[in-house]
C-alpha cells in the first residue's frame, strides 16, 4: 500500500506542477532542433527523428557528440553549446512528444 500512496502523492504533485503553467513550452534550445530534425513523418531526410525517441538515447548521443567520441559533421559543434542539465531537459521533452 505504502508505495502506491507515495506514487499517488507524486502524481498529484506532478499534476499540480504542470497545471501551474497552462502551456507546454519546449525547454531552452529544444525548439531549434526541428529546423533540421523533422517533427513530421512526411519528410524524408538523412536526419534522425527526435520525436518520441527514448530520452537516454538522445542524452548519450549528445554527450558523445560533445566529447568527440561520436563521428559528426555539425552536431559536435552544436552539442558543445549545451550543459548536461540542458541536454537532459531537451531529451526528456522530445521523448514526451507525439507525432
Amino acid at each position: 500500500m505504502r508505495p502506491n500512496h507515495c506514487l499517488a502523492a507524486l502524481v498529484i504533485l506532478c499534476a499540480s506542477a504542470t497545471s501551474a503553467s497552462a502551456i507546454d513550452v519546449a525547454p531552452a534550445g529544444a525548439a531549434a532542433c526541428s529546423g533540421c530534425h523533422p517533427a513530421s513523418r512526411a519528410v524524408e531526410t538523412p536526419f534522425t527523428r527526435l520525436t518520441g525517441r527514448p530520452a537516454a538515447e538522445i542524452v548519450t548521443a549528445m554527450q558523445e557528440f560533445r566529447g568527440g567520441q561520436r563521428p559528426a559533421t555539425v552536431m559536435d559543434r552544436i552539442a558543445k553549446g549545451f550543459s548536461d542539465d540542458e541536454i537532459k531537459a531537451i531529451a526528456t521533452w522530445y521523448a514526451r512528444q507525439k507525432d
Binding site: 529546423g35 533540421c36 530534425h37 523533422p38 519528410v43 538523412p46 559533421t73 555539425v74 559543434r77 553549446g81
Partner: peptide, 30 residues
C-alpha cells in the same frame, strides 16, 4: 560551441554536408 566545418576533411564529409543541406531544406520548408 559552433564554428565552421573542419578545414581538412575528406570529400566524403563534404558530400555528407551537401546531403544534409538538402535534408535541411526539406525539413524547414515542411
Amino acid at each position: 560551441a559552433g564554428g565552421v566545418s573542419p578545414a581538412k576533411a575528406p570529400r566524403s564529409d563534404r558530400a555528407l554536408e551537401a546531403n544534409f543541406a538538402n535534408g535541411w531544406f526539406k525539413t524547414i520548408t515542411e
